[in-house]
Amino acid sequence: MSDIRAGDLVECIDDTPNRPESQIMPDLGAIYTVTNIRAVGDGASVRLKELTPSCHLGGVCACGDCGWDAGRFRKVYRPNGEFIASLFCDVPDRVEAPELVD
C-alpha cells in the first residue's frame, strides 16, 4: 500500500482519466489534502478534501466512497513548526543595506 496517509499534502502527478466516465480529475501539479485512503485491489484509493469525484451522482458504482488511485499523487514533505523556526533563529531582525551612491 502507499505511504500516503490521511492529513498528508499530496501533489497530483497524473491527471489522465482511465475511464470514459471520469469527469472530475485532479489538476496536474495541484496540491491537495488527503481525507482518507483505503485499500482497493492491490493498490489504494485516495479521497481528497478539495475535490470529490462525480461517480456518486449515479455513475458506475454510485457508492459515494470513490477516490483516485494513490499512484496519481506524490506526497509533499511538510516540515514541522520547530524545524521552520530553527531556520529563522539566526536571521537578524534588520539587515543593513548599503547606501546607493550616484
Rank of each mutant, 00 (worst) to 15 (best):
T16W: 00
D90Q: 13
Y32A: 01
G59F: 09
P17T: 01
L57C: 02
D3H: 04
C63F: 06
R78C: 02
D90I: 09
S2F: 00
S54E: 15
A6E: 14
P92E: 04
R38P: 00
P20S: 02
C12T: 07
P92D: 08
T33A: 01
A85S: 07
D42W: 13
M25P: 06
S86V: 00
S45D: 11
V40K: 01
I84N: 01
C89Q: 11
A39E: 14
T52H: 13
H56F: 10
W68V: 03
L100R: 10
Y32C: 00
V91C: 07
D69Y: 14
P53I: 06
P79F: 03
L48C: 07
I31D: 03
D15Y: 05
R94M: 10
P98N: 06
Y77S: 02
S22M: 15
M1D: 12
C63K: 09
L9N: 09
G59A: 06
C12L: 11
A70W: 00
G43A: 02
P53V: 06
S2I: 00
A70M: 03
P98D: 09
Q23W: 06
E11Q: 15
D93T: 01
Q23G: 02
D3N: 12
P20W: 04
T16M: 14
C55E: 15
E21P: 01
T35V: 08
L57M: 10
P79Y: 09
G43N: 08
G71S: 03
N18Q: 12
H56S: 02
R94N: 05
F83C: 00
F88D: 11
P17V: 10
P17N: 03
R94F: 08
V34R: 13
V10K: 04
F83E: 10
G29T: 04
I31Q: 03
R78P: 00
C61I: 08
T52F: 11
P92S: 04
R72L: 02
V60T: 06
I37Y: 13
V34E: 15
R78Y: 07
G43C: 01
N36C: 05
C63V: 05
F88T: 06
Y32V: 01
G43R: 09
G7S: 09
E99M: 09
R72C: 06
D8Q: 09
V60Y: 15
T16Y: 08
N18M: 14
G41T: 06
D27R: 08
D3C: 00
E99T: 11
P79W: 12
Y32I: 01
V101P: 04
R78F: 05
D65N: 07
N80A: 05
W68H: 13
C89T: 04
N36F: 02
Y77G: 01
L9S: 02
N80R: 07
V40L: 03
G7A: 06
D42L: 10
Y32G: 01
E96I: 10
V95W: 14
S54I: 12
G67V: 07
V91W: 14
Q23D: 13
L87M: 15
C55I: 12
L48G: 10
G7Y: 13
E82N: 14
K75V: 11
